[in-house]
Deep mutational scan, measured.
Amino acid sequence: MAEQVALSRTQVCGILREELFQGDAFHQSDTHIFIIMGASGDLAKKKIYPTIWWLFRDGLLPENTFIVGYARSRLTVADIRKQSEPFFKATPEEKLKLEDFFARNSYVAGQYDDAASYQRLNSHMNALHLGSQANRLFYLALPPTVYEAVTKNIHESCMSQIGWNRIIVEKPFGRDLQSSDRLSNHISSLFREDQIYRIDHYLGKEMVQNLMVLRFANRIFGPIWNRDNIACVILTFKEPFGTEGRGGYFDEFGIIRDVMQNHLLQMLCLVAMEKPASTNSDDVRDEKVKVLKCISEVQANNVVLGQYVGNPDGEGEATKGYLDDPTVPRGSTTATFAAVVLYVENERWDGVPFILRCGKALNERKAEVRLQFHDVAGDIFHQQCKRNELVIRVQPNEAVYTKMMTKKPGMFFNPEESELDLTYGNRYKNVKLPDAYERLILDVFCGSQMHFVRSDELREAWRIFTPLLHQIELEKPKPIPYIYGSRGPTEADELMKRVGFQYEGTYKWVNP
C-alpha cells in the first residue's frame, strides 16, 4: 500500500466541504435556525453545542446559521458558553472563530407547556436576519415526558411559513410498544414523516454505516452471507464503567431499553437485511423493517440478565456495585447486563442465532459485530482449526478484520490463527472521521433520513421486546451478580454456547 501524504486539518475539512456542497440537498446560502429545546441540560452542553461548534469551526454548516437555545432556566448566552465550552476542545488559535460562533447564538427562556412562551420564541426567531423565511431545525434534547406539549406548541407557534421545518427526537422513544405508539401517533398528527428525525446516534458511527458497503459492494461476501456458512452472529456493546452516581436515570430504563432495543437491534438489521433497491432512505429502511418483521418476540429462556457488584480487589469506582450508587433505588432489580438470542425467521437466516450482548462495568470498552462461520467440513488438521470470524469493530479503534487459519512457519503443516486486517487509523491517516452527532446533524440539514429511525421500524423493535420488558417488570427477577471489570455473568457464556457459538479464547485482536 502506497504511503499517504499527511494533510493538514484545513485540507481534510476542505475535502469534506467539497463532498457536502456538491450535493443538491445542502442549501449552503439559505438562512437556517437550529433550535435546541432543553438548552440547559446535560445532553445540550456535552453533545449538541459542542457538535454545532465543530461543524461551524470546520465550515460545514450553511453560511447563515443561527443557534437558539430554549429552556425553562433563566440563562444568558454567557451562561450557555460557560457550561458548554469546556466540552468544545477549542484551541487558543480558534479564539476569534469561537467569538464568531457565540455571536450567532441567542437564548430564550420559557415554559414547555405555555403557548405564550412559544409565541415569544417565534418572535425572537423572526427578528433574526431573514428569520421569518429561514429553515428551522428543532432538536428535542428533553425528557420524553414533555415531548407531547413541546411538539404541539412548536407546531402551533414556531413553524417557518416559507422555509422547511424538521424536528429531531432523542431516544428513548417511549418505554414499550404502547407508549411508543402513543408518542408516534401524537407526533405524526403534527408533522409529516419526512419532517421527523428520530435519532439513534449509533447509526451515525462510521463502521455501522460501513456495514452496507461491506455487504453490498464486495462480491466475495454475497455468496457466504447466509445460514449455510454463518453459524452465529454476535452483536456486542461493552462499557468498562458503571453508573457513577447517575444511576437514578438509568434505573428508569435499564440496559435493554438503553442499548439493546435500539443500538444493537439497528446493527442487527444492517447485518441481516436484503440488498435495498438503492441507497435512498426509504429503500434502506424498507429492508430493515422486513428483517424486524421476521423476528419473533424474545423468549425468556433465551435471556440472561445481570447486575454488577463491587470488586473487592478493585480501586475507586470498581469497588462499588450498582446498588451502592446513592441515586439507585434500594434493592433495585434493574439489569445492567443483558444477553438475548433472537432468530430472523426467513430463508437466508433460518436457524442462525443472533446474540445481542450489552452491559456496564465490564472488562473493556468495545462495540462490534462478529460473524462466526461454520467449521470446515472434512477436517484434515486433527481438530487444530478454529472457526473463521469476520469482525466489524465499531469502537474504539474502528477496524474490519477476518480471523482465519494460516500455516505456522516451519517444517510442518501446523495451522495457527491469524488475521486479515483493515484498521482505519492506519489505512486512512488523512481522513477526519466525523463524530456520530456531527454526521447525523449534517444529515438533518441535508434532509437525508437514511440513518434515522422510521415509525414502522420503531414499532417493530418495541413489538419484539415489550413482552419481555413487561414480564421483567411484573416478576422482578433478581439479576445474576457479576463482578465489576469482569466479562459479565458466566451464564451468558453458557447461553451463547448452547445456541452454537464457540468461544476459543486463544486469539485476541490487537490494534496495530
Score class of each variant (00 low, 15 high):
I230P: 00
R198L: 01
R17A: 15
G222P: 13
Y202N: 01
K152M: 14
Q111F: 10
W225K: 02
I52M: 07
K205Y: 06
E63S: 11
F216P: 00
S189A: 13
S188V: 14
K97S: 11
L98H: 03
Q119T: 15
A115T: 10
F191S: 04
I48K: 02
T31D: 13
F138C: 06
F66W: 13
G204R: 00
G242M: 00
E239W: 04
F34N: 04
W164H: 10
G110S: 07
R81G: 06
E148Q: 15
Y118W: 12
T10P: 08
R120E: 09
K47Y: 07
E19G: 11
E239Q: 03
H129Y: 13
T65S: 08
G41L: 00
F173Q: 07
W164K: 08
G38M: 02
M37G: 07
F56N: 04
L130H: 15
L140Y: 11
Y70D: 01
V12L: 15
L60V: 10
I199L: 04
N64E: 07
V233R: 01
S106C: 11
N105F: 05
T243Y: 05
A127V: 12
F21I: 15
V68P: 00
P143E: 01
F241K: 04
A71L: 01
H27V: 15
G222I: 05
H155Y: 13
G222H: 06
R192I: 06
Y107R: 01
N165A: 14
D181G: 12
E148D: 13
V233G: 09
N126Q: 10
N105Y: 07
T236V: 07
H155V: 07
R17L: 09
Q111Y: 09
P172K: 01
R72Q: 02
Y197F: 13
C158A: 12
I162N: 10
H27F: 07
F250T: 01
F237V: 13
D113M: 12
P143Y: 00
I154N: 04
E94F: 04
G245Q: 13
F21L: 09
G14F: 14
E93C: 10
M212P: 08
E148Y: 06
C158T: 11
V233S: 01
Y118S: 08
L121M: 15
M37V: 12
P50I: 06
D200C: 01
E18A: 12
R257A: 14
G110E: 06
S106T: 14
I15G: 08
K89Y: 12
A78Q: 09
Q133T: 11
Y202V: 02
A116H: 12
P223C: 07
A141C: 08
A6S: 14
P240H: 12
L235I: 11
T145D: 01
K205T: 00
A149Q: 13
F26H: 15
S117M: 14
H124R: 12
P92F: 14
G163H: 14
F138T: 11
F253K: 03
I33M: 05
L140H: 07
L61W: 05
L211Y: 01
G14N: 15
K97I: 14
F56Y: 11
Q111A: 12
G163Y: 10
L130P: 15
L121E: 00
L55S: 08
K89I: 08
Y249E: 00
M207S: 03
G41F: 01
T91D: 09
S117V: 10
G41E: 01
A44N: 01
A149S: 15
Q195N: 07
R72D: 02
R166P: 02
P143L: 05
P86G: 06
L190P: 02
D100Y: 09
N122H: 13
L130N: 05
D181A: 05
G222L: 14
G23S: 06
R246H: 02
G163S: 09
E244Y: 10
H129N: 14
F56V: 04
R104V: 13
Q195T: 10
N229E: 03
F253R: 00
Y107T: 10
S123G: 13
R74Y: 15
G245A: 10
M212W: 02
V12C: 15
F138S: 02
Y112E: 01
R215A: 01
E170L: 03
I67R: 00
A109E: 09
R257K: 08
K238M: 06
H201S: 05
Q209C: 08
R219T: 13
D42F: 03
R104K: 11
G254Q: 05
Q83D: 06
E63G: 10
I199T: 09
A90C: 04
N126V: 08
P144S: 06
E252L: 13
L43Y: 02
Q83A: 13
S84D: 08
Q133E: 09
E18T: 06
V77L: 15
S73H: 11
R227Y: 11
Q11E: 08
F253G: 01
G131A: 14
F66K: 13
I256D: 00
D100E: 14
C232E: 06
I167A: 13
Q119P: 13
R192N: 09
A127H: 15
N229F: 06
G248M: 02
W54M: 13
S157L: 05
N226T: 02
A6C: 14
L142T: 04
F21K: 14
I154W: 03
L190K: 11
F101L: 01
Y197A: 00
S132K: 14
E85A: 13
R257F: 00
S29G: 08
N64L: 09
I255W: 03
G248N: 07
L61D: 00
N210E: 06
L203W: 02
N122D: 10
E252I: 05
H124A: 13
L43R: 03
N64S: 12
Q195M: 07
P144W: 02
G110C: 07
Q161E: 14
E193Q: 02
R120W: 10
I15M: 15
V68H: 01
H129M: 14
R104A: 14
S157G: 13
L128Y: 08
S117W: 13
E99V: 12
P223W: 07
M125R: 02
C158Q: 10
T91N: 11
K47E: 02
G69Q: 00
F191K: 01
S123E: 15
E239I: 04
D228G: 13
F191V: 07
D176P: 00
A115R: 15
M37C: 10
F34Y: 06
D194W: 11
H201P: 01
R120P: 08
S73K: 09
A115H: 13
I196R: 00
K45I: 10
E99P: 07
I255S: 03
V146D: 02
E252M: 10
I199M: 07
A116T: 13
N153E: 15
Y249Q: 03
I80W: 05
M159G: 09
E206R: 05
Q28C: 12
L60N: 07
M207Y: 02
S8R: 14
A71E: 03
A25D: 12
A127M: 10
V150L: 05
I230T: 10
Q111R: 10
P143R: 00
K171V: 02
N185E: 11
Q22Y: 08
W54C: 13
N153C: 13
I33A: 15
A217S: 15
Y112D: 02
Y112C: 08
H186K: 15
Y197I: 01
P92Y: 13
Y118F: 14
K89R: 13
L235S: 03
M125I: 12
L128R: 13
N185H: 10
S132W: 13
C232R: 05
R246Q: 07
G248K: 04
F216A: 00
S180T: 04
R120N: 14
L43S: 02
P50R: 09
G163M: 12
D251G: 08
G242C: 05
L96Y: 09
Q28W: 10
I255Y: 02
S117N: 12
D181V: 08
S184R: 06
F26W: 13
W54S: 05
S123H: 15
T236P: 01
F66R: 08
F138A: 03
E244V: 07
V233I: 11
D176H: 08
C232M: 10
P223V: 06
I224F: 08
E18L: 07
Q161D: 15
Q119H: 09
F216Y: 04
T65G: 02
R246Y: 02
L137N: 09
I35W: 00
D251S: 12
H124C: 07
V77W: 15
T76A: 05
T31K: 03
D200H: 04
P92V: 09
A90R: 01
I256Y: 03
T145N: 15
Q83E: 12
L183I: 10
T91K: 15
S188R: 13
F191A: 10
E93I: 12
H186P: 00
T10H: 08
L137Q: 06
E193R: 02
A134G: 11
I52F: 07
E239V: 03
R219G: 07
S117A: 15
